[in-house]
Design a protein around this nucleic acid. Structure first.
Length: 874
RNA sequence: GAGGGUGUAGCUCAGUUGGCAGAGCACUUGCUUGACAUGCAAGGGGUCGUUGGUUCAAGUCCAAUCAUCCUCACCA
């Protein structure tokens, strides 16, 4: 049972071994007992393109804390793992890899391309899984899923068909965001706007009848080729007369009308706007209202189309220069103004988005959004912290239809078929079909679905939906969703409306939001900056527990955090501290079983540590229940380091030296009991080290991870003894303090005379503490001290005299005492002021008032002591 | 344009329901004290951004203001 432990903790030796044991024993799977209450988390599936980064490390640490806690609390827990095919990101990587081989998508064809994509998944999908295992994540790997596996694909088809039949999915010619590099549409949510310095070109368009010009301004002169009108505000007096007149489009020569539309703001620019329905979302709407022609001027990759021979094949930015030059030469350019404006870019490749009119599939959002808003308003789902509900509402209340078709191959192919003969559309789960009207073989839509369409179904598709499986009945709805604030709109909101629409239930009850992990300077970690930190390197160097500690401690929900060397070193030091505390305990342990502390004749310090431990159990439990994981971990840190190590272990050393005594036996039982319980409290946060130590201690059961979580126990609450121990501790600290002030080395032992009313506390039994911890040669508790030439240390419960007269400068000592007296008097008058305030005494809770009274009496005792000391010196 | 976050020790950040301001790192001093120098002990260092308000009591609640960061929308 007992092992020799090395002086320094070496995580590398134990982590992989323990993880393999846990997994092989099936601890990650839910309990077989189907009556047990369940607790379920689905993992935010990492993309198969990447490897684990610090964001994942944080996200999964938090999930593992929750799932391990609930497992120990007796829930049947399930953490469903999996990966996301990440259509656009993966496809871009494969295209890039092929480019290096000199190949294009068309060269290898759809089948060939998909083969490459699956190969990619085999190669990289598994890597992220092994990285999650390194973190200690207790996922049920037997239930691992992939957004593109058979089951998820079936769920996607089912949803598509249901929505189509309900009229909530439609196909339409709309203006969409087109990425000319990725060669696909992207949704509104996937567009990132960035401020760019640009120009405002003032142009003039001549009237067809030769009666002068109308002046307008544009940031995109190259789209002039597709202009089909110029719009003004109907109430703009400057232009009322010209509404309906024709203009000649410069360079092109086409006749276009002047139209009136409320969209135009009279006081912006010249009050006249060129309208290009094919290449601007607002213009598209104006065009629709006025029945304007839609003239597309760009190819897929944003080059000018062949219809304009002079510019054909030019890139849009090159065309801009040429067109501006031509306009200038022909006298249509009035001037150029510097102008900074927001430009939409692709969230994957940062290429400037080209709005483009095309036939796409959309999800009609209005009806889906309403119940999703209600579920959060009603509290069926809550966000932690709550403030993110506002973001959610804002997004949901202003939602526009969701463009779901993507011109990509890697993804769920849209289950729609078209008849080239009679234009019939059929939506079906089948892989091919013939036209129900004319019997001709139908052509399948070549496009795939937005990758978020499948991740929106993740909480239930992973459990077997649309089939009514055991897992779905047992584990759905899930409980907590843990994710970063950056994907609330992309993912969380879509899971909520999807869950409500297809299963009739909110997919989870709580959304725990965390922030970003930034570098030590507070910068976002990114590839381009090269400031990313690899969690696996950290694990190799410091261990997974240290990494988990560094990520979980001092972090509060929804807030960004910095990751730094100091933080991880502190975490590593903490693991080492725990290791050595355990090592000390084991060195002094010869009991085979830990007996409950109630059965023993407990010493003061035993009751004190048990009482503090008991409070810790209550606090940590409450903090975890309310998702204050950082606070809970902070309390564990303080208890282990400051209370357990720095005090209790030190207090016990004399008893451990006295082998074979009853007191020694009691000490063994109490310290083992407290250590064991504390390890359990810490286990969800730091699973490896706690398991390794727990296995070395006397224990029942096979693993700490399936042991019972400690419960608050009223019979371990000893408030009197806490107070008594505090008297001793503050006396010891005061003595140390004085000795340090006087530069007395610890090796210089001195006699202590303690004058006190609390002879039950300052007694023969506790004298040894002063010898061990306050450098006392011997301790005398007496009614009063009559010897002269002593250093006097006054606490609220005792006056301590150290005959060290030769080391003390009396004048300095008097000065110090007077200063201390002044401080105490200040405190006394502060509290007296408070207590003489009628409002405070009558309105504040009795406990607070009593607390103040007790403090006052302590300070008065201290004052008496100080005054006596001053008297003595004089 | 709309919404939100943050502002606490030199630095990075906690601070749960309002009840005497905390940690880590850094700094000063002293310690090879029988688990740990990845350690022990003692210490210095804060008008809790600013101004008002509510309250017996405000870092905490309210209002305003300054600084800073973010999200959403977007006017050509």
């Amino acid at each position: 049972m007992k092992k020799e432990l090395s002086k320094q903790y070496s995580p590398a030796e134990i982590e992989d071994r323990l993880y393999a044991e846990w997994e092989s024993k099936g601890y990650f799977k839910p309990s077989d007992d189907k009556e047990k209450q369940t607790y379920t988390i689905v993992i935010p599936p990492p993309n198969i393109t990447g490897q684990l980064h610090m964001g994942h490390a944080l996200d999964n640490t938090l999930q593992d804390i929750l799932i391990r806690y609930k497992r120990m609390k007796g829930f049947s827990t399930l953490w469903v793992p999996g990966t996301d095919h990440a259509s656009i990101a993966t496809e871009a990587k494969i295209v890039e890899a092929m480019r290096k081989e000199g190949l294009t998508k068309d060269d290898v064809g759809r089948e060939g391309f998909l083969q490459r994509a699956w190969d990619w998944n085999d190669k990289f999908g598994g890597r992220i899984v092994s990285q999650l295992k390194k973190m200690g994540s207790s996922c049920d790997w037997s239930r691992k899923r992939f957004t593109l596996d058979e089951g998820c694909s079936e769920a996607v088809k089912e949803v598509f068909i249901r929505l189509y039949e309900k009229g909530l999915i439609y196909r339409g010619k709309r203006i969409v965001n087109w990425c000319p590099k990725c060669l696909t549409t992207i949704s509104d949510a996937e567009v990132e706007y960035e401020e760019q310095a640009g120009s405002f070109w003032h142009l003039r368009y001549p009237f067809a009848d030769g009666s002068g010009y109308i002046e307008l301004a544009t940031t995109r002169p190259e789209t002039l080729l597709g202009d089909t009108a110029v719009a003004v505000n109907p109430h703009d007096d400057r232009y009322k007369a010209v509404i309906g007149k024709k203009l000649i489009l410069p360079l092109v020569g086409r006749e276009i009308p002047v139209i009136a539309d409320e969209y135009v703001e009279s006081d912006f620019g010249t009050g006249a706007v060129k309208i290009t329905p094919a290449h601007d979302p607002n213009d598209f709407e104006v065009g629709a209202r006025h029945n304007l022609e839609i003239i597309n001027v760009f190819t897929d990759d944003a080059k000018i189309v062949d219809d304009y021979p002079k510019y054909a094949g030019m890139d849009r930015f090159e065309a801009r220069k040429t067109i501006v030059k031509d306009l200038e030469e022909k006298g249509f350019l009035v001037g150029i103004e510097n102008y900074s404006h927001n430009v939409g870019t692709c969230y994957r490749c940062s290429t400037t988005i080209e709005p483009r009119v095309s036939m796409q599939w959309f999800v009609k959002m209005e009806d889906l959004a309403k119940p999703a808003i209600k579920a959060v308003k009603d509290g069926d789902i809550r966000f932690v912290p709550e403030r993110f509900e506002k973001n959610y509402f804002h997004w949901m209340e202003n939602i526009r239809d969701w463009c779901i078709s993507r011109q990509l191959w890697w993804g769920h192919r849209i289950p729609a078929f078209y008849c080239d003969e009679c234009n019939e559309i059929t939506v079906t789960k089948e892989e091919s079909c013939v036209c129900p009207k004319c019997g001709k073989e139908m052509r399948r839509d070549p496009d795939t679905l937005d990758t978020w369409f499948s991740s929106a179904l993740w909480p239930f598709s992973t459990l077997g939906w649309p089939h009514d499986t055991d897992d779905l009945r047992r584990f759905y709805p899930t409980n907590t969703l843990v994710t970063g604030y950056d994907i609330i709109t992309f993912w969380v909101s879509r899971m909520i409306f999807s869950g409500l629409e297809y299963t009739g239930k909110a997919p989870f009850d709580t959304v725990l939001i965390h922030g970003l992990v930034r570098d030590a300077q507070g910068r976002k970690m990114s590839k381009s900056l090269g400031n990313g930190i690899d969690p696996l390197e950290i694990i190799d160097k410091y261990g997974a527990d240290a990494l988990r500690f560094a990520l979980a401690t001092g972090n509060s929900p929804g807030n960004d955090m910095r990751f730094s060397d100091e933080k991880i070193e502190n975490a590593r030091n903490f693991t080492n501290k725990i290791w050595n505390a355990a090592r000390f305990v084991l060195m002094n342990l010869d009991i085979e079983n830990i007996e409950l502390p109630e059965n023993h004749k407990l010493a003061l310090e035993d009751k004190w540590i048990l009482s503090l431990y008991n409070t810790l159990v209550k606090d940590v439990t409450a903090n975890i229940e309310s998702f204050e994981l950082g606070v809970a971990l902070g309390k564990l840190y303080d208890f282990i380091w400051d209370i357990f190590c720095d005090w209790y272990i030190e207090l016990l050393k004399p008893r451990f030296a006295a082998k074979g005594t009853e007191s020694n036996l009691v000490a063994q039982n109490v310290i083992a009991y407290v250590l064991c319980g504390t390890l359990k409290l810490l286990h969800p946060f730091m699973p490896f080290i706690t398991e390794e130590i727990w296995q070395s201690l006397p224990h029942e059961g096979d693993s700490i991870m399936v042991s019972d979580y400690p419960e608050y126990n009223l019979s371990l609450s000893f408030s009197d003894d806490e107070r008594k121990m505090d008297m001793l501790i503050s006396a010891i600290k005061a003595i140390r303090n004085r000795r340090a002030e006087m530069n007395v080395p610890p090796s210089k032992k001195a006699a202590l005379y303690i004058v006190t009313n609390h002879t039950d506390v300052f007694s023969d039994a506790t004298a040894v503490f002063f010898e061990k911890l306050a450098s006392a040669s011997h301790v005398v508790v007496c009614e009063n001290y009559s010897g002269d030439d002593a250093v006097q240390i006054i606490t609220d419960s005792a006056a301590v005299y150290i005959p060290l007269a030769e080391m003390v400068d009396f004048e300095k000592e008097l000065e110090r005492l007077n200063k201390e007296k002044e401080n105490v008097l200040k405190e006394i008058s502060r509290i007296e002021g408070k207590l003489s305030n009628e409002g405070f005494v009558s309105k504040a809770p009795a406990a607070v008032v009593d607390g103040e009274r007790a403090k006052l009496s302590k300070y008065r005792d201290t004052l008496t002591g100080i005054e006596a000391a001053i008297e003595k010196i004089k």
